[in-house]
Each structure stands twice: as structure tokens, then as C-alpha cells.
Amino acid sequence: MKRLIVAAGGGGDAVAAAMLNTALYGDEDQAVILTYAWDRLLIDPVPGPRCAHDFAGLETVTRSVRSVPATARPIAPAGSTLPRLAAELPQTFALLEPQHGVEGVTNQLEELIAHLKPESIDLLDVGGDILARGDEPTLKSPLADALTLAACCRVDALVRLLVAGPGLDGELSADDLRPLLGPVVHTFTAEDAATIGSVLEWHPSEATGMLAATARGVRGTCEVRDAGLLVPLTEASPQLCEVDLDEALSHNTLARSIMTTTTLDEAEAHSHEICGFSEIDYERNKATWLKDQPPAALDTEVVLRQLDQFESEAHARGVTHTTFRHLTEVLNLNDSQRGDLRQLLLFRRPEQHAAPLWRIPDAT
């Protein structure tokens, strides 16, 4: 039996898709996760999503779909988490390529559905920004989700839209999303989170990390991203909700506008018109900025002193938790140092680890 899960935004959505597969369908079902190779600048220094020619060692699934085995490698300077995910998780990861716009993504979906004849097709978004209109001031990454939503609405197959962890991506609040959400399909548990626990020790996704933490019972307020967004961790955070696909499309102005696009540039132009930006703009600008920002050395005593100051200020802001990704940025380290930082902090202050988050201690 085959299941097809489309990770709406790539990255952390692909990891959450693996957790969803086991939670809803069990280990006996073989799932194919169709996902972007779009790891932003944390892993991939090149702005925008990668396509097949950015990899060596992909395997052919259909005429336009390639899978990413554990032995595949991104071709420098590109980077990708997908080969490592393929090595550590039992699902098959297939590469979603948006370079030919919604037309191309639709074609990939149609070919894959015809090839797999899947028992079910789920479109999964962690956080819920797939339900954005496009003009929300907190919106950061509308384009990837709009592309997958538009394509899933075009295929002649039953696709179920699922939103996990409403509000956890810090783009739309849980309160804003609540009227748009349908029934709760599942509430993730600590047992579910354990299936991706080892991946979240190194994967940079903050939203999926918070989803797993709340499934383990963590509650409070988590500070994330370089902008220091505050995300509530509540009883609703580990929920998985179904959303009517057509209603989602009617709400998402960007998705409707790009239905017939044939290039990524064309889709990005619509994002500029409707949202005023595209996430690739942000990546281009940040990539330029990072070139002129040499990382600090990971000096233990300096790091701990800076950490104490950050934690004191964060506690005053009402923050109870943060991510290792955010800590890495706060301490002016680069992503290649995130693993070393994590090991240092787990060794020196293990009591503050609320896997996979970092707990901010009460003021002393």
C-alpha cells in the first residue's frame, strides 16, 4: 500500500510528513513524500529551491520526478538536507521542482499519482501559512505553499489538506487560523515525536521542532527566527487539522493567481504584486548580508556569558523556550557551528534541554 504526502513548503514540512505517516498510517504503509529541496540559507547558501540538476545520484521515478536516495549529493555550492533525511527515515523522498511554475508541479503530481496509484494523498503544512490571503504583515514565505496548493487543486484526484501545529510557523496566529480550520484529525503525542527525534537533533526547522516539543508536552512561549518572533506553545499546538482544499484556495489570493504559471519567475512576479515580496527576495538579501558578516569564534566562556545575557533579556520578554537555530544566530555563530553549540550547551546545562528546544530559566 502506497501513501503520497506532499510537503507544502519543503524543509520542516517534509520531516513532519514522516511523523504524520507513522502516526496516521503506521509503519506497514510505504509513503512517498514529495518535497522541495528548499532549505533556505541555513543549509543551502544559494537562494531559492534546488532542482534535479543541482544533485548527483538521483533516481528516476517517472519522466519528470526523481527520488533522492541517501547516496545522492547536492552539487556545490548547493546544499540539501534531503539525502540525510533519506538515510535516517524510512520514507521515500521525491523531489518537487517549481522551476516550471504550477504547470510543472501539477505535471509532477499527475505523473506520480498515475505511477503510484496511492491509497491516499495528503498535502501537509506546518503552521498554517498555506491559508494566508497574502497581505498579512507577519507573512514571510507565501510562495512555496501557494505553488503546492494551486497544483493540488488542479489534479484530478482527491487531496486532503492538513495543517499541523496551527500558528507554529510564526506567520499567522492560531487565533487568526482557528475560523479557517476544520476538524482535528489527530493530536500528536510523545510517541509520534520519537519517530523524528534523532532528525530534529540536527535539522534546522523551528516549526516542526516546536510541533515535536509540544507533542512531548512542552508549553510556554518560544522565541524563533532572526527577528525574534514569539510563538505561543499551547494545548492546540500539537493538533493536526483538516481543511477544505477548495476553501483554502478561495482564501489564498496568491495561489489562485498563479494557477497557470509556467515558470518560477512568473509565480514570483505574482508574489511581488500580491504580497509585496517573495521569500526568495529575503534569501537573496540575506545571502548578500551574510557574506560580509564573519561568524564569531565558538569560545566556551564567551558563549556562556552571552547566553546568560540573552536568557535574562528573553525571560524579561516572557520567553520560556527558544530553538538552537535562534541561539546560533543570537550568538553570531553560523549554521556549521550549531551542532557544536548544541553539544556544548547539553553538556554544560542539560537540565535546560526541552527536546528539541532550549528552556529559558527563571530569573535568579
Rank of each mutant, 00 (worst) to 15 (best):
M1A: 11
R3M: 07
L4A: 02
I5W: 01
G11C: 07
G12K: 07
A17D: 03
L20S: 05
N21M: 04
A23L: 02
Q30P: 08
Q30W: 09
V32P: 05
Y36R: 09
D39C: 01
I43V: 15
D54P: 00
G57L: 06
R63A: 15
V65C: 11
S67G: 09
V68L: 07
T71Y: 00
T71M: 03
G79R: 07
T81N: 10
P83M: 03
P98N: 03
G104S: 02
V105Q: 06
E111T: 03
A114S: 12
A114Y: 00
L116F: 03
L116T: 05
L116M: 08
L123C: 05
D125S: 15
V126C: 00
L149H: 10
A157S: 13
D169L: 00
A174T: 07
P179E: 04
L181P: 00
P183A: 15
V185N: 00
H186W: 13
F188M: 12
D192Q: 08
G197V: 06
E201R: 13
H203W: 02
L211F: 05
R216N: 14
V218H: 09
G220E: 10
C222Q: 12
E223N: 07
R225W: 14
R225S: 14
D226H: 13
D226E: 15
G228P: 00
L229S: 13
C241D: 04
A248L: 10
S250R: 11
H251P: 08
N252Q: 10
M259Y: 05
T261S: 15
T261K: 03
T262C: 09
D265I: 06
E266V: 05
E273P: 06
E273D: 10
Y282C: 07
Y282D: 10
P294T: 12
P295E: 07
A296F: 10
A297D: 14
A297K: 14
L298G: 02
D299Y: 02
E301Y: 06
E301W: 06
V302Y: 04
L307A: 01
H315N: 06
F324N: 01
V330R: 15
Q343C: 06
Q343T: 11
L344M: 15
P350L: 02
H353G: 02
A354R: 07
A355W: 15
W358C: 03
D362G: 11
